[in-house]
Design a protein around this nucleic acid. Structure first.
Lengths: 149, 149
DNA sequence: TTAAAACCTACCTGAGAGCTAGGGTATCAG
DNA sequence: CTGATACCCTAGCTCTCAGGTAGGTTTTAA
């Protein structure tokens, strides 16, 4: 598997939040039950989403979580990165914070890591896809009544 | 990391084989030394490549491995799949052999796994990239003398 | 016949995914 | 003001598997 359940579950949480709208906070217990996922584990995931400022929380009774922005303003690249960490196809790739390639082999400047070409392309394809897809794209037929009406 | 060292190392082996040309077999010891990778481990990887009919082997003294086809006829999708197994972004994805989506949630036909849209796009992007890139694309400046001349 | 190489099976080990546990702390209804 | 609800934090647990080792057998060139 390319992504862990962190991304899988976390995306499902985000979709649920988008589905419920932003009127009032949604308790994680509801989502856990609805999706059939362990609450205690989701708490960890949603904590990451909160730290990345993708969701906001309301504590106490009738508390829960809300999207920090409109679904169309949240890209899946942000969501997946918040959950999984920086997206890198292979190990030697991940070093530099800007996402540029940093193959250990190339410490010796005479050598060029040729397979780098491949992993660059793969990474770009993934990131591009995640950036192009917003949470709104995944939120089913709530035909934006609230907005339209 | 998205792909394991199996893909990373295996691709490097394939690139090396392509670089050396198909005149005579290349011993794995040479590649291991050149790339600084553990021989015993590469043996496992190259076994997968052989079973996938991407390389051929010559046993005995002066034996080694050869590409089964020309570098331009080998896509990286074949290579990566041989090494890593079927490419699936998340768990629920991998079930069906044709690569189509098969989310456990959708056992209940009333439910639609909306995040499926995302993972489908991601998978398609990766596979497409891997299919478009051939081993020849990664093989450096052997300007095809053999073919051109 | 010896050395070089592929080939095969089995095993080991550390790290990390995927949780669980048990508290603490804010908020609101009554 | 007191309980219930829910977020929040830290710690730890278990099992799998990536990554690699080990040691043998078989094939072939010289």
């Amino acid at each position: 598997m390319i992504f862990s359940t962190k991304a899988e579950y976390g995306v499902r949480v985000m979709v649920e939040l988008a589905r419920r709208g932003s009127a009032q906070p949604v308790a994680l217990t509801e989502i856990a039950e609805h999706e059939g996922l362990p609450l205690a584990y989701l708490e960890h995931l949603v904590a990451r989403l909160r730290r990345a400022r993708l969701v906001e929380s309301r504590r106490g009774a009738h508390g829960g979580y809300l999207l920090a922005r409109g679904p169309a303003q949240i890209t899946m690249a942000e969501v997946v990165e918040a959950l999984e960490g920086r997206i890198a196809p292979i190990e030697c790739y991940s070093a530099s914070p800007d996402g540029s390639i940093h193959c250990v082999l190339e410490a010796d400047p005479k050598r060029v890591c040729t397979s780098k070409i491949l992993w660059t392309r793969v990474r770009d394809a993934i990131v591009h896809t995640l950036e192009e897809t917003t949470l709104a794209d995944l939120t089913p037929t709530t035909p934006k009544k609230a907005v339209a009406a």
